[in-house]
Design a protein around this nucleic acid. Structure first.
Length: 486
DNA sequence: ATGTAC
């Protein structure tokens, strides 16, 4: 038996972790595809995901390659774990390249606490966090914003939260894009999206979203870890969530207009789910402006959640913020499109980089890396699945050459939710995790089954691919102690 | 991911 599966027969091996999907793979491909996968991960890649990479390569103005990260799996139109850059003048913007949960992302907070400070009271601490941060589908916040405040959130992002008492100015500095993208078009957010967004600011949501108490169990790069304020044995806190119903509704609304626009502008789509329009069209720009509103909402959401989590820790440990040292390390988006400048064939060009289930991984000295991290590069935060390690990496110059400054975003699902519910029982998974020293507090056991460690690829395998490729380099590994699931 | 089907 060859180690190659059927999939690899049609691919060209570039190196141990890079496979090219040739232009001849499917009619209409304007550029090749690139899959960043180790041979074992290639073996479990779904045919449908490969086809989606090829479909994206057929969209107008795509630059260099249609890419898939090692955690790639089937998504709406574009694969989750997909990266595609479209020329500002000749390209397109597509909601499918961003996803329904606009600016789903991850935030990491450091602390001065040790593992031994947290273990004894972990159940009580999780219970308090569970009640401080509303979670689950359709959950409502204890923070209520009016329409004017919602506009402020859409336009100013997490700065709004800090100015209204939910955090400190340093939080904004330690955030991708300072927690605020320019170009919000509040008029492009529908009444329904507003109605869904108003009561949900400061809520976790459901699915793979979580709050997690972790400890640093391995440091790979001492210099970078020092810059990020991380050391072995230290407690960290991670928040994974997005733009809730607001982002979902914005995506739904604009998918409709961009489906019509694709016909109007006579764009030949290999898949209707790739609805898009030329970058300078009103349809594309209106979507982009609404997407910015959702992205800014998501950063504000994570900021408010972090504030409430800090309050819980202060109360629980009877320490003030200075003693606790719960500084924001960084916050990354992993579902967003951005207008960025990249060097292509030796020339600087402006491109709309769509990252869907992919993390930005900017290098040392880049202008959008916080001053404190300038020498090491942007922190890249990769959450593990429930009960498995999360990783902190840093961005690199190689990422700018290879992947438009992008890396993977997580572990990547390998089993459907329905299948997982059939395969696992939540109570049993919870017991198994408990034996491993991981406590879980969730809204219902079924959700624990859907998120069981066995339904995801190994986060360490995925991270090793990006590390070995050099598009992000490992800094630290974080192991979970307690998890709150929506 | 999602008022898990307008």
């Amino acid at each position: 038996m060859s180690e190659d599966n059927d999939i690899s027969i049609n691919l060209n091996k570039i190196n141990d972790n890079t496979w090219e999907v040739p232009r001849g793979y499917k009619p209409g491909m304007r550029v090749p595809g690139r899959l960043f996968l180790s041979p074992p991960l290639l073996n479990i890649l779904e045919q449908g995901t490969l086809d989606q990479v090829a479909n994206v390569a057929a969209l107008p103005g795509i630059q260099k390659y249609s890419m898939a990260m090692p955690d790639a799996h089937l998504g709406y139109g574009f694969p989750i774990g997909g990266v595609a850059a479209f020329d500002r003048e000749e390209g397109v913007i597509s909601p499918g390249g961003v996803g329904f949960d606009i600016n789903c992302g991850v935030r990491l907070i450091r602390s001065n606490l040790k593992e031994s400070d947290v273990r004894p009271g972990i159940t009580d601490l999780l219970e308090r966090l569970f009640h401080a941060v509303p979670s689950g589908v359709g959950s409502k916040s204890r923070l209520r914003v009016n329409d004017d405040q919602l506009d402020d959130v859409f336009i100013h992002g997490s700065r709004w939260a800090v100015e209204n008492g939910y955090g400190v100015p340093n939080d904004v500095e330690r955030c991708e894009s300072q927690g605020m993208m320019e170009g919000a078009l509040v008029k492009q957010v529908s009444t329904r999206a507003r109605q869904r967004g108003r009561p949900q600011l400061g809520t976790l949501g459901s699915g793979n979203h979580f709050l997690e108490i972790q400890y640093v169990d391995e440091i790979y790069d001492t210099k970078a870890a020092d810059a990020f304020g991380l050391h072995e044995g230290q407690i960290t806190f991670m928040i994974h969530c997005g733009s809730r119903g607001a982002g979902h509704q914005i995506c739904t609304d604009h998918l409709r207009t961009l489906t019509q626009a694709a016909e109007k502008y006579k764009i030949d789509l290999p898949d209707k789910q790739l609805a898009c329009a030329p970058t300078d069209s009103s349809e594309a720009q209106n979507y982009f402006g609404a997407m910015v509103c959702a992205a800014n909402y998501a950063w504000t959401n994570r900021q408010v959640i972090m504030h409430w989590a800090r309050e819980v820790f202060q109360d629980f440990f009877r320490q003030d913020m200075d003693e606790l040292g719960m500084d924001l390390v960084y916050d990354v988006a992993h579902n967003v499109a951005k207008l960025e400048t990249h060097k292509i064939d030796g020339k600087k060009r402006e491109v709309y980089v769509h990252r869907k289930g992919a993390t930005r991984a900017f290098p040392p000295e880049h202008s959008d890396v916080p001053a404190a991290y300038k020498k090491v590069g942007q922190p890249v935060l990769i959450p593990g699945s429930m009960g498995t390690a999360s990783y902190v990496l840093h961005g690199t110059h190689d990422a700018m050459d290879i992947s438009f400054g992008s890396a993977c975003h997580g572990a990547g699902r390998v089993m459907s939710r329905a299948h997982a519910k059939h395969e696992f029982r939540g109570e049993q998974i919870q017991k198994d995790l408990s034996k491993m020293g991981i406590s879980v507090r969730a809204t219902q056991p079924a959700l624990i089954a859907e998120e069981a460690p066995g339904v995801y690829k190994s986060s360490s395998d995925v991270v090793d691919v990006v590390h070995n490729l050099g598009i992000a380099r490992k800094v630290a590994r974080l192991m979970p102690i307690g998890v709150v699931k929506g």
